[in-house]
Design a protein around this nucleic acid. Structure first.
Lengths: 309, 309
DNA sequence: ATAGATATATGAATGATATTCATGGATTTT
DNA sequence: AAAATCCATGAATATCATTCATATATCTAT
């Protein structure tokens, strides 16, 4: 018989387009989902997915169920929000600080949605980019810090958001365009265009270039579009999250290359004080943040709860 | 975490107004539901039900969840209907024959709903009341017979609908009004007002009066309202399903009394040929029939699948 | 072509957990 | 006061979802 777990599976399947990715997405094994789907298919006497090359695609019946899943899961989230509001007086603040410039892209629509759902919570974006997020939390300067580096400390909880790949961004006619992937040595003679943050906050430098003893010339820009503008104008190379540049790559404005054999990956966390972590509106914020990120951002991978750094 | 089984429980709880009745309704034990509800309450940190005398009532949070259950379960039924339509070419007929006059009351709205959902199925009501329903099915005169008596035969399936009580109906100033319940002897000198069917199709006569050797004078009427009119005019006593007379009793048009110490009960079945039983639209018809009956009819009790006669 | 990587399917074993059983306390009815 | 009815709950049971191990198929790369 149909249960919500089936609907959650179907929703994840739609979002990810593959059984194994969907399994990662909802923290189950590929086998579990495969069994679930088989059970549904046997129950209804209809195919829900159909092999499509190496992966699968939804059938007509599958799309019906996916549509149902969307509606139902949304309704459930809405009433669970209402219950959360009933369970305690929710007036509080959610001041968000960013460690990662690119996150603006997905944060803005998320904040809009949040404001609609939690009118009584004071929502704010802490201006500037801060060198010590943990300190910021402890001193009460912010309620959440969204960042890529999580230094463990008592009383601080790092909620995993997702794992993403950082790609090198080049002008379409850049001399290095022929390479399928870039290695540390390729950065020796280029200008690296980055956000205006210290070197130890830039993954490419910290994890790839510095260990190889390479110190390229740096140039900074505040906004992602400005960086891409400079890249396209052949002023240098940038390293940005894959989802942040997808649109520009798709339109051949720039090209993207993997960094190192397995790529340069980074994890994104939302960090809060332990006491903040239990607040219903914070939990809802995190849940919808993950949802919208997985739904809208490309090449984003779930992160285990226990995983660190 | 919330699952559909919780929502089904909540919906049943709303319909029945008590944990144990809800348990019967969905064929689980009272204990199971009690555990489910406790789990929900612990999960949300909110009371869902609150003791009210011997039974319980829904809290504010409970009503939120019940509302969710209503929406969600309805949406699921709708898409399951769609899937059923996809799984095979559904064009067929559903000709309904009635053994029980009173059933008109709840059958009409049900047929309207069915017509909307299964436009391609030829829906019809077989006129008249038939002495041998099994024969009617086997000869193809009807696809479903709704009746109270289920004679077992190969190739015929009796789908249980519900169990209900048959009450004696009296004029408010009838000499027997003082009795809390009527026994066979009380019927010795009264006129019994019934539908125009043979004696062996009237439960009161078959199971109560005949065994006691009592043969009251009979008078017949075609319609329920006509019977009640005669009763109210002190022309005699009738025996009708509790849910068929509820409105008239509530308005003091007539009064109702239990028959025998434990009451006179009857089971209602929908009988079909075995081959008809598997058709998706028939299954949907039965499901919504049960749903609407339990939701709208008063004092109606679920019937076990295996139970007979 | 062939090996390697990646994706899905599936039977058997495992593990989690929903349900039942047994029971006690509480309320209403006779 | 006793009987009947209802809900709550800890412990035992049973069910069934998930994992594990493994096989097959597809795509990629050398």
């Amino acid at each position: 018989m149909l249960e919500l777990r089936h609907l959650r599976t179907l929703a994840a399947l739609q979002e990810t387009g593959s059984v194994s990715r969907a399994a990662k997405r909802i923290h189950l094994t590929q086998s579990a989902l495969s069994h679930q789907i088989k059970a549904l298919q046997d129950h209804y006497g209809l195919a829900i997915i159909r092999p499509r090359g190496q992966t699968v695609e939804l059938t007509d019946a599958g799309r019906h169920l996916v549509a149902l899943a969307g509606k139902v899961l949304e309704e459930i989230q809405a009433t669970e929000r209402n219950l959360a509001k009933m369970s305690e007086r929710v007036s509080g603040s959610l001041r968000i600080a960013l460690e990662c410039h690119t996150c603006f892209d997905w944060l803005m629509p998320l904040m809009d949605a949040f404001r609609r759902n939690w009118a009584d919570v004071e929502l704010d974006l802490v201006p500037g980019f801060h060198s010590d997020p943990v300190k910021l939390l402890e001193e009460g300067g912010a309620d959440v810090v969204i960042g890529s580096q999580s230094q463990q400390r008592r009383g601080i909880v790092h909620h995993p958001l997702f794992r993403f790949e950082i790609l090198a961004v080049l002008a379409p006619d850049h001399p290095l365009r022929g390479k399928r992937l870039l290695r540390a040595a390729d950065f020796a003679d280029v200008t690296l265009i980055t956000y205006p943050v210290p070197e130890d906050r830039i993954d490419l430098i910290l994890n790839v270039l510095k260990p190889a003893g390479i110190h390229p010339h740096r140039r900074t820009a505040e906004l992602t579009v400005a960086i891409l503008q400079l890249v396209a104008s052949r002023r240098g190379i940038a390293a940005l999250p894959s989802w942040g540049i997808k649109n520009y790559v798709d339109h051949d404005y720039v090209i993207a290359r993997r960094i190192g054999t397995h790529g340069l990956w980074s994890n994104l966390y939302a960090s809060t004080l332990a006491e903040t972590a239990s607040r219903p509106y914070l939990r809802d914020f995190l849940a919808t943040a993950r949802n919208t990120c997985f739904a809208t951002l490309d090449g984003v991978i779930p992160l285990e709860e226990k995983q660190t750094g």
